[in-house]
Computed example of a mutant assay.
Amino acid sequence: MAAAPFAAASPARFTVDFTAGRAVTSVPGGPSIAVGVGSTGSVVRAGGSSDLTGTQTVTITFGQEVRDVTFTVAGLTRVNNSGINGLLEQVTVAPAPGVASRSGAVGAATAASPLQASAEGQEGSALVTMAGPLRSLTITLSSAQGRAVPRVTITGMSFIAEAGTAAP
């Protein structure tokens, strides 16, 4: 008897669990995809979010090709504080993303136009989108002012991937 063929792959939305290093669908016991996080700085993973602290570059690698990636960058801060002790957090993403919505933030998350809080004393956030297909993305956090330590949260990362399973 021949081995059962694989069922046709079907696209599914996966949600990233940074602690587990995996992305899963909403189906209990359903397929999962490995998600790796490499960083040049401090990253604290807590389920569906990752806190980035300090100037750094984070590379997120997916176990297979994905598309329609979305995530939120939250906690963008801008504090003048007499200049040298100030903070102007900036976030860039590569490959170049789209920004679907912003709250208290400006920028396109690119090197030429980084995401940042739109006003002094205001905390900003942005929903970032990437059409793909891609196998990895890079997020860079820095401060364009002062010596305070930048810190933002990446949360709600999800994507679409082919979720093929073996036929019964």
Rank of each mutant, 00 (worst) to 15 (best):
residue 63 G to N: 06
residue 8 A to N: 12
residue 24 V to R: 15
residue 90 Q to N: 10
residue 145 Q to I: 06
residue 129 T to N: 02
residue 7 A to K: 14
residue 114 P to Y: 06
residue 92 T to E: 00
residue 99 V to M: 10
residue 67 R to L: 04
residue 85 N to D: 15
residue 166 A to S: 10
residue 91 V to P: 00
residue 23 A to R: 07
residue 35 V to T: 05
residue 43 V to G: 01
residue 123 E to K: 11
residue 68 D to M: 01
residue 1 M to V: 13
residue 58 V to G: 02
residue 79 V to F: 08
residue 136 S to Q: 14
residue 105 A to Y: 05
residue 29 G to Q: 03
residue 87 L to F: 02
residue 98 G to I: 01
residue 157 M to E: 01
residue 140 T to G: 06
residue 62 F to M: 08
residue 20 A to K: 15
residue 16 V to W: 00
residue 38 G to I: 11
residue 152 V to I: 14
residue 53 T to A: 12
residue 147 R to A: 13
residue 30 G to A: 08
residue 161 A to R: 01
residue 15 T to H: 14
residue 14 F to D: 01
residue 87 L to P: 08
residue 78 R to T: 04
residue 65 E to N: 10
residue 107 G to A: 02
residue 52 L to A: 03
residue 51 D to S: 14
residue 147 R to T: 13
residue 129 T to A: 10
residue 9 A to P: 06
residue 57 T to E: 14
residue 39 S to V: 02
residue 55 T to G: 13
residue 6 F to C: 09
residue 145 Q to F: 06
residue 5 P to N: 12
residue 15 T to F: 14
residue 93 V to L: 04
residue 122 Q to W: 05
residue 91 V to N: 00
residue 136 S to T: 11
residue 153 T to K: 15
residue 31 P to E: 13
residue 158 S to A: 15
residue 18 F to A: 14
residue 105 A to K: 02
residue 158 S to H: 11
residue 143 S to F: 08
residue 88 L to M: 11
residue 32 S to E: 15
residue 162 E to C: 07
residue 167 A to G: 07
residue 154 I to R: 07
residue 41 G to S: 09
residue 21 G to I: 10
residue 70 T to C: 01
residue 142 S to F: 05
residue 163 A to C: 04
residue 97 P to W: 03
residue 101 S to M: 03
residue 42 S to Q: 12
residue 87 L to I: 13
residue 43 V to R: 01
residue 157 M to P: 06
residue 92 T to L: 05
residue 8 A to T: 09
residue 92 T to K: 07
residue 149 V to F: 03
residue 143 S to H: 01
residue 10 S to E: 15
residue 140 T to H: 10
residue 99 V to W: 01
residue 144 A to S: 13
residue 1 M to P: 09
residue 86 G to K: 08
residue 132 G to P: 06
residue 120 E to I: 08
residue 148 A to G: 03
residue 99 V to T: 09
residue 33 I to W: 03
residue 113 S to W: 01
residue 155 T to Q: 12
residue 69 V to A: 00
residue 96 A to M: 02
residue 22 R to E: 13
residue 95 P to A: 12
residue 90 Q to C: 09
residue 69 V to T: 07
